[in-house]
């Protein structure tokens, strides 16, 4: 079947099967491979994108369900000229990634958090990220980066 969606502000369409996952449609049909598929069992959160403004795990949503929706992916976060957004820049400044595999999902989850809670506490950030797994950093610098992106002083947060 044919679906029409808006991805990062651009109208696009494509043919999908009933079983096509949103993650597969983004990666294989649209070639937007910034959305990563880690576990494919909705545990790891590397595939988080926003659908109509809310974070979802794109490996656990059918592409057909997204017909007519507005989708934001990691590719839409930086400006056209490549300037990183505040969250991405904070991840770079605070070394919030090592291998980078989980980072697209982390950035998209962080964006969803800061949209509903612009000044979260450290505990709230950690709690919100319970559906995003990172096997490199131990989370400390990810949390620090998100706190910094929210405009809060991160001097007191331990870096490890």
């Amino acid at each position: 079947m044919r679906i029409e969606v808006e991805v990062n502000g651009r109208r696009v369409g494509g043919d999908v099967e009933g079983r096509t996952l949103l993650s597969g449609f983004l990666r294989d049909t649209l070639r937007l491979t910034g959305t990563h598929v880690g576990c494919d069992t909705s545990q790891c959160g590397a595939c988080v994108v926003h659908v109509d403004g809310v974070a979802v795990k794109s490996c656990t949503m059918l592409a057909a369900e997204a017909d007519g929706c507005s989708i934001s992916t990691i590719e839409g976060q930086a400006s056209e000229d490549g300037t990183l957004n505040a969250i991405q820049q904070a991840f770079q400044d605070h070394h919030g990634l090592q291998c980078g595999f989980c980072t697209p999902g982390m950035v998209m989850s962080a964006a969803a958090l800061l949209k509903e809670n612009p000044k979260p506490t450290e505990a709230e950030v950690r709690h919100y990220l319970e559906g995003n797994l990172c096997r490199c950093t131990g989370y400390h610098n990810i949390v620090k980066a998100i706190m910094a992106a929210s405009g809060q002083d991160v001097g007191a947060i331990a870096a490890e």
Binding site: S42, G45, V48, A55, M61, A112, G131
Partner: peptide
């Protein structure tokens, strides 16, 4: 229930 992204679906 679950995590934030799961709760949205």
């Amino acid at each position: 229930i679950g995590d934030p992204a799961v709760r949205n679906r």
